[in-house]
């Protein structure tokens, strides 16, 4: 669990890891030590106040360089919301996230369709499964050039897509994408906010965290 100045959802995400049966480890952006972690979650929030561009400064933080190096070797990395923005800025995932087309911050429970149920973070879902997890962002509109989007779709790298309404104007209803090897996943909605009946609209988000535990045990 990598915390930057301005991260907000690191505690919720750590709790989700624990509920899934994992052991969350706190990491600080300015350190240069990934300790012995098996996977990294970049949580939501507003790292560095979203200055310059959302995720831009965090993507160049000291520990992110280690995360990028380990991710390229196959370590699973999940970026949620601001974490997704960081992964795009760091070049681990294609495309970019920018201001919502309607300019409003949007938060609501969102229906998603899982299109890839074979990544390190989504193996506990079924292809085509509809899940409900909260979405909350002001700069969540996924964009890329037409050629890049065509290539992404051609390679089957859209992991989750918005259904029953697009909350932010994202190109082709894309809510989350993966790296070529399926180990790095970024998405704007927040699975860590849908892990308990008491506090979430469902427990549909837990699958991200149980999936990765199996991925690292099987590795």
């Amino acid at each position: 669990m990598l915390t930057f100045p301005g991260s907000l959802d690191d505690v919720d995400a750590a709790r989700a890891v624990r509920l899934a049966g994992g052991e969350p480890v706190a990491l600080w952006h300015a350190d240069h030590d990934l300790l012995d972690v098996d996977a990294v979650v970049l949580p939501g929030g507003f790292s560095y106040g979203d200055y310059l561009r959302a995720g831009a400064i965090a993507a160049r933080a000291p520990l992110m360089q280690d995360v990028v190096a380990r991710a390229r070797q196959g370590m699973p990395v999940l970026g949620i919301c601001n974490g997704f923005q960081v992964l795009c800025e760091a070049g681990l995932l294609p495309g970019a996230l920018t201001r919502n087309s309607h300019l409003h911050f949007r938060n609501r429970d969102q229906v998603l369709v899982v299109e890839r149920a074979d990544t390190a973070w989504t193996a506990d879902y079924r292809t085509g499964q509809r899940i409900v997890i909260p979405v909350k962002n002001g700069e969540g509109r996924y964009v890329g050039s037409t050629e890049d989007l065509d290539r992404l779709e051609g390679e089957g790298r859209v992991v989750v897509r918005y259904a029953d309404g697009n909350p932010n104007g994202s190109s082709r209803e894309i809510a989350g994408v993966t790296s070529e090897n399926g180990r790095v996943v970024g998405l704007m909605p927040h699975p860590e906010h849908a892990v308990e009946d008491l506090t979430g609209p469902s427990t549909d988000g837990l699958g991200f965290f149980t999936s990765v535990l199996k991925a690292v045990v099987n590795a």
Partner: peptide, 8 residues
């Protein structure tokens, strides 16, 4: 590399 994101 920093001031602009060449993707967009």
């Amino acid at each position: 590399t920093l001031l602009a994101n060449p993707v967009i």
